[in-house]
Simulated assay, not measured.
Amino acid sequence: MKASILLGSALALLLIAPPLRAENPVQVRQLLETGACAGCDLQDADLTGAHLIGADLRNADLAGANLTGVNLEGADLTGADLTGANLSRAYLTNAVFADADLRNANLSGVTMYHADVSGAQLSGINLAGATLGGTAINIGGQ
């Protein structure tokens, strides 16, 4: 009897809770297996610690994605939406963020040498503890 009450309570919570946006598992798998996912919907995806060296993520939607500790060395994120993404402790050397939207992204503790951020939206980014070199980022501007 107690089990059916608990099951009924859990079912009731599922019915009244707002639906959560699930990541697209097919496109996440495609990215992890091929390193190519241009234009993919990866919003809110959890890619923690992934090795995405040289990945093609042009125009991908990575808004709100968890990219903590990810290796994006040489990756192309031209035009990607990384609004509010967590890139803390990511390795971003030689990555291309041209015309990408990085507003309010967490870049704390990143390693970023010679990254292309030309035309990128950078307002509200967190660079605490970041190691930067050869990357033109103006604090307080674009």
Rank of each mutant, 00 (worst) to 15 (best):
L77C: 05
Y113T: 04
C40L: 09
A45T: 07
N66F: 08
S123F: 07
A128D: 12
Q27A: 13
I5W: 14
G109R: 08
M112R: 10
S88Q: 15
G39R: 04
T111L: 12
G133L: 10
L102I: 02
T68N: 12
A55I: 02
N71F: 01
L132N: 09
I53K: 01
V96M: 01
T135I: 00
F97L: 01
E73A: 06
F97Q: 06
L122N: 02
A63C: 11
H114E: 11
A38S: 13
A10E: 06
L82P: 07
I16K: 05
N59K: 15
L13K: 07
N138S: 06
A100W: 05
A36W: 06
G79M: 10
R89K: 14
T68D: 13
Q27E: 15
L47T: 10
T34L: 14
A36Y: 10
V96K: 06
A98I: 06
G35P: 15
A130T: 10
L31T: 06
A105H: 07
L127A: 04
L87F: 04
T48A: 12
A65F: 15
D56G: 02
R58K: 14
G129R: 00
L102S: 08
L87T: 01
A10W: 05
L32Y: 14
G134Y: 09
A100R: 14
A130D: 09
L62Q: 06
G129E: 05
T34Q: 11
L32E: 13
A80Y: 07
N104S: 11
Q142N: 12
V70I: 03
R21P: 00
N138H: 04
D76Y: 05
D99K: 15
M1T: 14
G8S: 02
F97H: 03
A98C: 03
L20S: 15
L122A: 10
D101Q: 12
N126F: 06
R89P: 08
V70N: 00
L6K: 01
G109L: 13
F97M: 01
D61C: 02
L11W: 10
G124S: 01
G35N: 11
A63L: 05
D99F: 14
N126C: 08
D81F: 04
A136E: 13
I16W: 01
H51P: 03
H114P: 07
L132V: 09
L32K: 15
A130W: 04
L11E: 06
I137A: 09
D81M: 08
A80L: 10
I5T: 13
G8D: 02
R21N: 08
L31M: 12
L11V: 12
A36V: 13
D46A: 13
E33Y: 08
D41L: 11
L42Y: 13
C37N: 04
L122Y: 08
S118N: 03
I5V: 15
G140Y: 04
T48I: 02
L132Y: 03
L13S: 10
D101P: 06
G134S: 01
G8F: 00
A22S: 10
N59P: 05
N24T: 13
S118Q: 12
A10G: 00
T135K: 07
A120C: 10
D56P: 00
V70Q: 01
D101E: 11
A120Q: 10
A95F: 02
G49L: 05
C37P: 04
L107W: 03
S4M: 11
V96L: 07
V70E: 03
G109N: 12
A65G: 12
L31R: 14
M112Y: 07
D99P: 11
